[in-house]
Write a protein that binds this DNA or RNA. Structure first.
Lengths: 341, 341
DNA sequence: TTGAAAGCGATACCAG
DNA sequence: CTGGTATCGCTTTCAA
């Protein structure tokens, strides 16, 4: 249990002790053939004695690869990105790659993350989640042929894994329509949100499309694109429910927002689902606990699949397709039902 | 948007273009003084033109530091480790360090993780969560003076951040006692679990201690140390509730297990809290959604604090104390109440 | 103020 | 089979 007094052994130390050249040590360490058994034994003995372990940093420089995959993503503190990371971790577990996380909370941090990553070969490959990398960086990535896969985001030059948000929006809205609802409100993100980009917007489109094809007119006062926070969603829902003609159902663009809606309903004594139906989007873990009806998007799967595609690219195989669309499905639980009569 | 045809520029390219030596370029890049203004300008111009960015891999080798902090932890797929990671990410956000995650699901993966990390200077520092590193590795870490902080784990040679599990166990049990319960069961982890080590065991001790000082005898059939899974906890709770003299309250060593208990109760038509009180431990996010009474352990804070200590050590300042104990507190929600009469 | 050259710790080519 | 040596890209003395 006492500390070694010496600094870590280098390959030269091993070579010296074994009385061989460093090339031979390298061969033994990397299991390249062409080393006589007795020599190999001497080297191994020296390695053991000196507790030698190759410096990966030096290996990186020499081999021009790091065995590290960088994951850039915003809002690691929220539930959905975490699900995606789980998928990524799972896919990477059986690979030789390690994972470096770059959380992107603030704008400057974001810039730095991309900067770091484009930094030639700090990582062997990149997974960018819910974020659109600047054209500038994309160009560099390609120039240096660093493989990069987007998850929950799109960019012309890059392969990506996304879900069909429009279909999801339609699915949710159709569910409510089929239950008999006609006064269906929508709560979504700010359209300009640089992070979640098109997702919420596409869900709105799905919502509108479903209403149209059911012949239900879209009422502007029911379409509220505010923010992804639970608290703001709550206050928006509060307003909606106090409308002279309140909606009988609310479709929220995320479960987090749906939870805010549930809170608002509880606060006003509006019973769910008899007086108000609520449907979310994402199917985060909490959704199942509170019985939230929602659109399941395969968060875990998106991470897993994205990582898989990246591993393929890293292995030199070309990505099967540019944009891979993951299906969504409706999960009916306890917050949706027929409208009150 | 078209790709650069050339490989990334190296420092020598910049030097050549600016007509200076590489040393000068290095000075400019790293903002070391002693560069004449016109020279500096020429260099900056060359950097811009070539889109030069220093290779961090090469810098690592030269400087013997990586600006990466390694985080080793098991079960990233569960809620509590995630909370801790959030705390770590937060603390690291304002530092120059990046974060490399090593998830340790399986035993071999675990070995590999420690191996990688002890690997001289792949990371500048280590955060080990809910895991006890082998003595062997600890020795190496110290020998190579790589700072390492334990979170939710202890080891003689290393500073650590833990919570007071015994106090937590007492707190939970006392809460139930004060409500009037006398038949209080305990569901904990397998004592031999190599991952969660002492935590659950200590909570048991707290439980026993509280009962003792209240003069309530400990009934062996009420103390069930099984597993941390929700499903197994559910079936254990099921058994407990079918006992001729079932407990009126269950203290689970984790919220996950408590959720299993709640499921068992629901399955048997036992109402919570009128017929059965349930208290968990951890206060994971879901707890607040299902109204679970629990012992809040500062998961986020443990990560934050651990990272903070590591940053201090990295900055050369000595750790304030060897073992830092985070307080716990009772969060009373809707699953605990007086026992049925 | 500047540049040549010596590390940093590996890999791998090329002779021997 | 084995060893010397160039190389990876940067930082940092040491002289000029």
């Amino acid at each position: 249990m006492e500390a070694l007094p010496n600094p870590p052994a280098r390959i030269a130390d091993v070579a010296a002790r074994a009385g061989v050249g460093i090339a031979t040590v390298s061969r033994v360490v990397n299991d390249r053939g062409n080393v006589a058994a007795p020599t190999r034994e001497r080297v191994l003995e020296a390695i053991r004695a000196l507790e030698y372990r190759p410096s990966s940093v030096a290996q990186n420089l020499s081999l021009k690869r790091t065995l590290v995959i960088g994951v850039v993503l915003p809002f690691l503190t929220e539930a959905s990105p975490i699900e995606r990371v789980r998928g990524i971790v799972t896919a990477l577990a059986s690979s030789p790659y390690d994972l470096a996380l770059y959380d992107v909370e603030s704008a400057d941090r974001q810039q730095r993350a991309f900067r770091l990553l484009a930094d030639a070969h700090r990582t062997d490959g990149l997974l960018v989640v819910s974020l659109i990398p600047p054209d500038e960086e994309v160009r560099r990535l390609r120039a240096e042929s660093i493989p990069c896969v987007l998850i929950d985001a799109r960019h012309d030059g890059l392969p990506s894994v996304v879900i069909d948000d429009i279909a999801g929006g339609e699915l949710a809205t159709r569910h409510l329509l089929e239950l008999g609802h006609r006064r269906i409100a929508f709560i979504g993100d700010k359209p300009a949100d640089p992070f979640r980009f098109q997702s919420s917007r596409d869900r709105t489109i799905g919502y509108e499309r479903a209403l149209e094809s059911a012949g239900v007119p879209i009422r502007p006062e029911y379409v509220r694109e505010g923010t992804q926070s639970r608290y703001l969603a709550r206050s928006i829902a509060d307003e909606l429910l106090r409308l002279p003609e309140p909606p009988t159902a609310v479709f929220a663009a995320s479960d987090i927002q749906a939870l805010g809606v549930l809170e608002a309903a509880r606060g006003l004594g509006v019973d769910v689902p008899t007086q108000l139906s609520v449907i979310g989007f994402d199917d985060i873990e909490i959704a199942s606990y509170v019985g939230l009806t929602t659109v399941h998007q395969r968060l875990f799967e998106s991470g897993r699949r994205g990582a898989e595609l990246l591993l393929l690219a890293l292995a030199g195989e070309p990505a099967p397709s540019r944009v891979e669309m993951l299906p969504v499905d409706l999960v009916v639980r306890r917050t949706s039902g027929p409208p009150p009569r």
